[in-house]
């Protein structure tokens, strides 16, 4: 009995102390005022003054501030927009790949799978960095396009939203391919043959049979891309320009450049609230899939 208790208690206490408590602190600081002290916020919780004195000093000022300064509105909206568009682009690139992998000869599939997973193990930072050299004004892509004569002036791609989209599609592609591939591989091919025998064209068989049967994979892949992209920091900061607004970047700057901890915490709390809906929907989708399997 004692052994079972320690087995539960050790990971439980670890997560309580290093996951839950930090959140409570973020929430608390988001309700505090900025101070020029170290740490730069007030009030500090003090057992001597008691909990009521402490609570009475908390207020929603920082959240009100977030609604008044349109930087934050714009950053939240633009993160949503960038995440939605790049999820769609990743789906458009990833679906044909997953489809072709599932239709490839059996003996190739393990290798193809490996080729999709390998980039996932290499450093995220390096994969984003690789595009800086390609997309810059005198970069590889512009050199190539100038050489082929497609363009006569170098295109400005680096430090624009286009570069951010390319970077997101590139780094998150495996997350989209894997769940869709898993769904397509299970698909019974005789269903498609049946549809074609019954007079469907190949395209309408794809549209009416393949797509609906891979729906759970598509939904899972979209959430696996959308959720982390919403809080992305590295890609907009390296590939995006000064006008690329994403909330992860705003939070980082609020914290490291402006040193406004209460506002940074309030930004974090709102970002979390924004994430709750897609996370709950994702969880539902996974549950439905599990039930369908049983």
């Amino acid at each position: 009995m004692m052994r079972r208790f320690t087995l539960i208690a050790i990971p439980y206490l670890w997560l309580l102390a290093l996951f839950l408590v930090p959140f409570v602190i973020v929430f608390k600081i988001s309700l505090s005022d900025v101070a020029l002290a170290r740490p730069p916020y007030t009030p500090h919780f003090d057992w001597a003054t008691g909990i009521w004195a402490f609570l009475s000093e908390l207020d929603f000022e920082n959240f009100v501030f977030l609604t008044q300064d349109d930087l934050y509105w714009k950053a939240y909206l633009s993160s949503l927009k960038i995440a939605a568009i790049s999820t769609l682009l990743t789906l458009l690139v990833g679906y044909p790949m997953a489809y072709a992998m599932a239709r490839a000869p059996q003996e190739w599939r393990a290798t193809l799978m490996m080729l999709v997973i390998l980039p996932f193990w290499t450093s995220f930072l390096i994969r984003v960095y690789a595009w800086m050299g390609i997309l810059s004004n005198e970069g590889f892509l512009n050199q190539f396009l100038l050489w082929t004569g497609v363009i006569s002036e170098p295109l400005t791609i680096l430090n624009t939203n286009t570069a951010v989209y390319i970077g997101i599609v590139y780094t998150y592609l495996p997350f989209m391919i894997l769940p869709i591939y898993a769904a397509l591989e299970r698909l019974d091919e005789s269903l498609i043959e049946a549809a074609e025998d019954l007079g469907c064209s190949r395209l309408s068989a794809f549209w009416l049979v393949t797509i609906p049967l891979s729906k759970t994979g598509i939904i899972a892949g979209c959430f696996l891309v959308f959720i982390p992209v919403l809080g992305e920091f590295v890609i907009p900061s390296l590939l995006g320009g000064s006008d690329t607004l994403m909330i992860g970047k705003v939070l980082w700057e609020e914290f490291f450049s402006n040193r406004d901890w209460p506002v940074a915490s309030a930004v974090a709390v709102v970002l979390l609230l924004l994430l709750i809906i897609p996370i709950v929907l994702f969880q539902r989708n996974q549950q439905k899939q599990q039930e369908a399997e049983q």
């Binding site: 996951f19 915490s265 994702f282």
Partner: peptide
């Protein structure tokens, strides 16, 4: 609560995890 704390960090944006740990 325990299983929630196991799954939540998987979807948590890194900026939030980092910020909250630093504040702790």
């Amino acid at each position: 609560l325990f299983s929630g704390m196991i799954y939540a960090p998987l979807v948590m944006p890194e900026v939030i995890t980092g910020l909250s740990l630093l504040l702790l």
